[in-house]
Design a protein around this nucleic acid. Structure first.
Length: 192
DNA sequence: GTTCCGATGCTT
DNA sequence: AGCATCGGAACG
């Protein structure tokens, strides 16, 4: 299955965020032995450019956040609270900041189970698929990447929106509904 | 059920 | 000093 192309990511961040719901993260370990894991995205957050007071891009292209200003379709990883990694997909055209935080996914092979083990929360998700700072900058659109995103033809889910989690400091931007999730999905954060 | 807290290290 | 988090403890 072919990775989503650069053109998918090169759009408004909130559009990319919504459309990532239902898509499948494919993590490949080259090995040997070569292995892989697949998880369907069920919750994301859009972080916009310099005007977004909750975004790491708010202080401009600092060493950490510069990648948010670069070409779309790249992986932005950061370390939070000294122990958890968070993965983001860079959106918008080169020169404009934007990224989508991936907050929750469900392993594809577990989807049919009665109570599928969810990878809920950005830190837990990153740990589950073994993504760390050394993957920052990875090209999500390259055929041979250790991490790509694919459309497996599953039906487009019904999308709901809510405030982003953990950005209370951001004033009016904290109240924007820039978190998107599969409506009614049990793996989604309980927070409103 | 809720709220609180500590862990741990990078960023500004 | 604060953080785009998590899991466990304390409390009701």
């Amino acid at each position: 299955m072919v990775p989503l192309p650069v053109s998918f990511y090169e759009r408004q961040t909130s559009v990319v965020a919504r459309e990532l719901l239902g898509k499948v993260i494919v993590r490949r370990w080259p090995g040997p032995p070569a292995t892989s894991a697949r998880a369907r995205i069920v919750e994301v957050e859009a972080y916009l450019g310099e005007r977004d007071a909750a975004s790491h891009a708010r202080r401009g292209p600092t060493p950490r956040a510069a990648i948010m200003f670069g070409p779309p379709g790249r992986l932005y990883v950061y370390l939070i609270y000294g122990m958890h990694h968070c993965m983001n997909f860079v959106a918008e055209t080169d020169g404009t900041a934007g990224a989508v935080l991936i907050r929750a996914a469900v392993p594809v092979e577990a989807e049919s189970e009665r109570d599928p083990r969810a990878l809920s929360g950005p830190g837990k998700l990153c740990a589950a698929v073994d993504i760390t700072l050394r993957h920052k900058g990875l090209d999500l659109t390259a055929l041979d990447s250790e991490l790509v995103v694919v459309d497996d033809g599953a039906p487009v889910p019904r999308v709901a929106a809510a405030r982003r989690v953990g950005v209370e400091y951001a004033g009016a931007w904290a109240r924007r509904r820039l978190r998107f999730y599969v409506a009614g999905h049990p793996a989604v954060s309980r927070v409103r």
